[in-house]
Computed example of a mutant assay.
Amino acid sequence: MTLSVSAPSGDAQGMTIVARTQGQLVRRRFFQHKAAMAGLTVLLAIVVLAFTSVGFGPFDGWWKYNWTQTGTVVNGGQPTLTLWPFSLGEHPFGQDNVGKDYFALVMRGAQQSLLVAFLVGIVATTVGTLVGSLSGYFRKWTEAVLMRWTDVMITIPVLLIAAIVGRMAGGSGIIVLGLALGLVIWPQLGRLVRGEVLSLREREFVEAARAIGTRPRRIIFKHILPNTLGIIIVSATLTIANAILLESALSFLGVGVQPPDISLGQLISFYQGAMLTRPWLFWWPGVFIIAIALSINFIGDGLRDAFDPRQNRVRA
């Protein structure tokens, strides 16, 4: 909606007052968050680079090597990447001890780590949202059962239970691994959603919906959950950031992604002994893990500030 107001004096110019919706304010705050924009740019660049360079599924990539192709180790396998003048060379990230192109290995590892992380984020967000909304709305025995289950999950160290689950599901592929890990790290989100639902269920619009006979399922999904969307989205981004670190830790311990597939954490585990002699084999996957985790965290910070109702001033 746009309201035009003309000043009474001849010297003053007309003013245009723009009334923005909540969604427009959220988008504007997010796009004005410099750290979030930097994180989004880095994340998109990594995703595009990882999935287009070595290909994915039936689609071929533009890079001339793949992660399974061996060859002759040239110049000790040192990286050929130069920043000035910029040149990729034959093996920009170097080669491993059997002559595999390390750029292709890191790109494949980034693919698998990203897929697992986003699968974990989707599953954990879905489960946490359902558990939190049901326990917060219905209360009584529903809340007692679901919250005691949540408390039990929280008391067990995440890495311990994730290692057990990863050991059982790691050999079944990344999809099963992502689904299994998602069923482990949802409790924090579940408690956050429950707290929001507890405060919203007593609001006037929910009482009015109950008074006219609206079913609980419709009240939850049409009236309550849309008002908790901000906290759900922010928590989902932070869950994905935690998932990339968790998958890397599990793969480093040997209970995550299993050979013949590869992940960033697995590359660090394989070549940790080469840190002093061939440090590029250790540092490249580590740099990508840090870049992905930090960029997702920056995006989460931007979303948190954008959804915060106290951020009611937007720069022109």
Rank of each mutant, 00 (worst) to 15 (best):
313 R>N: 11
235 S>F: 06
171 G>W: 06
279 P>H: 07
213 G>P: 11
241 A>E: 05
308 D>N: 13
239 T>A: 12
283 W>T: 06
300 G>H: 03
47 V>L: 15
287 V>G: 12
178 G>Q: 04
210 R>A: 11
27 R>T: 08
314 V>I: 15
281 L>T: 00
134 L>R: 04
242 N>E: 14
62 W>E: 08
129 T>W: 06
168 M>F: 11
106 V>G: 02
218 R>S: 13
247 E>Q: 03
35 A>I: 06
297 N>V: 13
1 M>Q: 08
272 Q>G: 07
314 V>W: 05
265 G>C: 02
120 V>Y: 01
277 T>R: 07
106 V>D: 00
168 M>Y: 07
277 T>M: 08
11 D>F: 14
232 I>A: 12
69 Q>K: 13
100 K>D: 00
243 A>F: 12
80 T>Y: 03
78 Q>F: 05
84 W>N: 14
230 G>Q: 04
304 R>A: 06
110 A>C: 09
124 A>P: 13
297 N>M: 09
268 I>H: 04
33 H>M: 01
277 T>P: 07
131 V>C: 05
282 F>Y: 14
210 R>W: 07
289 I>G: 01
95 Q>A: 09
287 V>Q: 05
226 P>C: 09
198 L>D: 02
31 F>G: 05
197 V>R: 01
200 L>D: 14
106 V>F: 02
115 L>I: 15
254 G>E: 05
78 Q>T: 13
134 L>I: 11
167 R>H: 07
163 A>P: 02
79 P>E: 03
258 Q>C: 05
169 A>Q: 04
148 R>N: 12
129 T>N: 01
91 H>M: 14
150 T>I: 10
